[in-house]
Every structure is written in structure tokens, then in C-alpha cells.
Write a protein that binds this DNA or RNA. Sequence first.
DNA 1: TCTGGGGTCCTAGGACCC
DNA 2: TCTGGGGTCCTAGGACCC
Length: 346
Amino acid sequence: MSRWILHADLDQFLAAAELLRRPELAGRPLVVGGDAGQLDDPHARTVVATASYEARGYGVRSGMPMRLARRRLAETDAVFLPSDTTYYEQVSDEVMRLLRGLGEPVEVIGWDEAFVGTDGDPRELAHRIRGTVATTGLSCAVGIGDNTLRAKTATGYAKPGGIAELTAANWFATLGADPPEALPGIGRATARALAELGITTVTRLAESRPGDVAARLGPNRGPYYVSLGRGMGRTELETGPWVPRSRSRETTFPTDLTDRAALHTELRTLAHRVAADVAAEDRDCVRVGIRVRTRSFRTTTRSRALDPPGRGADAIADVAAQLLDELDPDRPVRLLGVRAELTEPA
DNA sequence: TCTGGGGTCCTAGGACCC
DNA sequence: TCTGGGGTCCTAGGACCC
């Protein structure tokens, strides 16, 4: 247990990582997203993964359709780069290695985010984290909190590249009047459900009766949301390596597929990629799932135990094919995905 | 906003068993 | 079989995060 929790969040990570190896692009709007093969396809159905701060100045945001981003940046000297996940993982690994070298407990929670705990001076550590990250050529914002939730929420006030602090002492003064969506873990759907209960601010959420929220949002989630409103979080960090529980691959096709044989070909390709990922983990698959999204954006999933568990590509592909046959989509398919649930690691 | 890809966790209903 | 209550597993879907 740590007296203080710090949350470090790398600034515009994918764009910043690209600038590390292409410093000549500094200052120009930069947008990262899509695969290398789709970059020049004007019809590709991709979205923005990360926009640099310059690009954000033109209203470009993560998750925005790439075609819209191109339109917004049409009159600029913007640069568009495909996602290079292998490279980002390398850069991320190096940053996390340096953070672990600080001598404090570290919990990695994503490519560009980590919690660091300390019983010492949190301001001093925050500056040390920023200095350490700076040695890689990247920068980060740091949130200081008395638990994980307050630290992560604080980072929102620190971006980009600053330091902010949220504790029990200033929690409600800082965001009590904000909508519940200001809290990590509460999205649009939950916010709407809370609004129907008359809960429109963090303070009102904190003052709600857990049972009332549970009746609407579930026996565990309800009380959990109330605890979020109160600013409660963990003070214990999970410092072990991240162990994936599943591996999946999915593809959105440039144009919808209707041909059954073509769907099966794509499904097998995905299943073999998943099988390779499973084998790379040196674990077995216990359950195979597929995901089908049709033209109307309606998404359906099916899954079945793999009996016996294993990692054979054909065994995984055969179950996926069975599930697709049983689902038998009668509408044009825009996305196909295959997922493997994994055994516990050895 | 014609809406990616890779993950995690929770919920709820039905099956099944005692 | 005019029929209870509960636990657990399986499955589909929803919500959220980066």
C-alpha cells in the first residue's frame, strides 16, 4: 500500500513516438491511424488513433473517421501516418522499464499510462518521472492522488506535460459540479442512465444511495459508480506483468462482404492469426468466439468452448467456421473478428 | 461521427443440478 | 407432477478503456 499514487500519461503518444524517428515533422499537424496498406485508400474505413496537438487545433480527435480528419486538415501541411504497433510497443516498453527503475512500485495500465506509488514526496517523484520520461525524447503529464482514481482523474487537469493533484481535500471542490462522465469508468450510456435517476453531477452521485443505483445499473456496478463519485480507488498497485486473458483479431473490410466463401476465407485468415498469437503466449485456447458486424452496424457475437483446449490453428478455425455457419448472416458483412480465450498461464 | 482494433469486466437469462 | 429455492455454468450482449 502506498501513501501516494501517481499517474503518468504520455502526451499524444503515437504522434510523439513518430516524431522521435521523424523529427523533421515537428510543428506540422500529425495524424496516426489505419494500416499501412490503407493509408492511400480514400475509401478506407479507418479512424484516427492519435492526433498531435497541432492537428487537434483543427478539431481532429481520436476515434474520428480518417476521411473527416483529412477534410479538416485539407488546407494544411498535415502528415498522415499508419499505426505501427510493433514500434509503439518498443517505445512503450522502454519508458516502462525506466519507470520501474525509479525504485517505486509501478503498475502499467496501457501503452502510454502507468501508476507509480510512493510513501515519499509525491511532487518530487512527479518531477523525477517527467525527467526520466524526457530522457527518451517524450513528455508526460502526471496526476498525483491519494488513490488510483484520484491520480488518474488528476492527470486530466495536468495535460499536456504538467502536474496536478487531487485528494479527498479538493475532490468535490474541483469536480463535484461536473457531470458523472468526468469520471473514468463512466461513459455516455451510464451517464444517461444516471441522469434518468436525477444524478447529473459527481456530488449527486456521491450522495446517492448505492441501493438505488444498483436497482438500475446492477448489484455490483451501481455501488461501484457511487464509490467513483466519492473519489474512492485503490492504494495497492498490481506490479506484476500483464497477463492477457484473451487474444483477438478483427477486420473491417473496405467494402462489405456478402459472399459466403469469401467470408469463410477471411475468417480462416483471422483464426490463423489468432492461433499464432495464442501459440506465442505458450498457452491454450479454451473458448473460441466470432464477431460479425453487418452494414447496419449491428454487431453479433457467438462463442463455443474448444474441446479439448488447444492451440492448433485448424482446430480454432474449425470452431470459428462452425459458429459462422450457424450464425449465417443474411446481410452484407462489414466486420469479422475471431477471439480466443486463454487458459491460465503455466 | 457512416462510425478501427485490441482488450477488460459486468449482467442477465436459461440450463442443469441438488 | 399446476411445481420451491439455490448455486453454478454457459452464453450473448453491453459498456468502457486506450
